[in-house]
Structure formats: C-alpha cells, structure tokens
C-alpha cells in the first residue's frame, strides 16, 4: 500500500489488488517463476519458485489450482482446520490462506527460513502490473487499483524494519542485540 498526500488535508491511498480466477489457472506456475526472478538480488539472477511470494497450491487430479500471495508472518498455527466444498471441489482452510505459518513451508526463504511477503512488485519506476500478472496470460491473475480516502497517514515500513522485527520475534531482543554488537565489533 502506498500513501499519497493530496491537498486540503485529505489523505488518499492507492489500493492495489490482484484478483484470482481459480477456473482460469492452468497450473503453469509462470507467476512463481516471474516473482522469484523479480525479487532476486541482483534482479532475475535466480529463478527459483521456492523463493516466490506467490505459489500455486495444486492438486491436479482433484482439480484444485489456487494461486495465493504471501501475506503476513505468524508464529503460531491457527486453529482453523475447516474443509470447504465449492462447486463440488474440496478445499482446506489453508488453500486460500496467505499467511507464512509454521503449519506449512510455504512463503519462507529456503535458506534462512525467513518469511516472504508479497510487495506488489513495488519498484522504481513503478511497474504497470505486478510481474506475476504480466506473465499470467491465461487470465487467472488480473490487476486492479483504485484510490481510497484514509483517516490518517500510516507509516510505511521498509524491508529492514520488517526483517528486524521478524528476527526479534524469532530470536528475542537480547540475542539480536548481541549478534548486532558482535557484527559491529568485527567490522571495527
């Protein structure tokens, strides 16, 4: 989400949305290919679906094809173990859940285990559409954006803040502080 200040004190924000049409997904996982490439550093240096922030949860013979984007990280599994039947097909609660959670190994960096989160391919210059949408030619993923009024300005957090917070939650303040001090000591 991006916050844009406009005149006479009104605040607007641009809401970006990726719409998913499950019936159109063909399971090619081009979205995963494109996402992992776009977010690799340097850009496109690696194509690895495991690092993708969008994953297609597939059960081919049960006709389940669900592209989901990575959302927030959570430490604990939820209690939800519901099963939904939609148009005769069975989905678990996890099928549509975007959370990077201990119940499954989706949306975690394969090396560090740190959580991944979709950032709508925010970049400079801005992309016309997120990369996953650009390569989804069968039309399962489409992009929409619009402006909304906001009550007050929310602060945008950078990757470093999010990453640090994850480390703190995972290892505790003291350990992170120790590691930081040690790192700085070595540098000096």
């Amino acid at each position: 989400m991006e916050v844009v200040a406009v005149s006479n004190q009104l605040k607007k924000r641009t809401v970006k949305e990726i719409r998913v049409n499950l019936d159109k997904c063909i399971g090619c996982r081009a979205c995963e290919v494109a996402c992992s490439g776009f977010h690799a550093k340097p850009k496109y240096s690696s194509i690895n679906p495991e690092r993708s922030r969008v994953r297609v949860v597939m059960d081919l013979l049960s006709d389940v094809y669900v592209p989901i984007r990575a959302g927030d990280y959570t430490q604990a599994e939820c209690s939800g173990r519901n099963t939904y039947t939609i148009n005769g097909k069975e989905y678990t609660q996890c099928s549509f859940c975007s959370v990077s959670c201990p119940a499954r190994d989706l949306f975690r960096e394969p090396d560090s285990g740190l959580p991944l989160k979709c950032d709508m391919c925010e970049d400079d210059p801005t992309l016309a559409e997120p990369m996953c949408v650009q390569v989804c030619r069968c039309g399962a993923l489409t992009y929409a954006s619009w402006e909304e009024d906001v009550a007050e300005e929310s602060v945008r957090r950078g990757e470093m803040e999010i990453g640090l917070e994850c480390l703190v939650t995972r290892f505790g303040k003291d350990k992170v502080a120790d590691a930081f001090d040690q790192l700085m000591g070595e540098k000096r």
Binding site: I26, C28, R29, A30, V33, L60, Y65, V135, R137, C138
Partner: peptide, 10 residues
C-alpha cells in the same frame, strides 16, 4: 474437468 498446462508455459 479442466484444461491445464506444463511448467512455465502459457
């Protein structure tokens, strides 16, 4: 039941 593709092909 459904048309489907292969890895990374539209």
């Amino acid at each position: 039941t459904r048309d489907s593709g292969c890895y990374n092909c539209p």
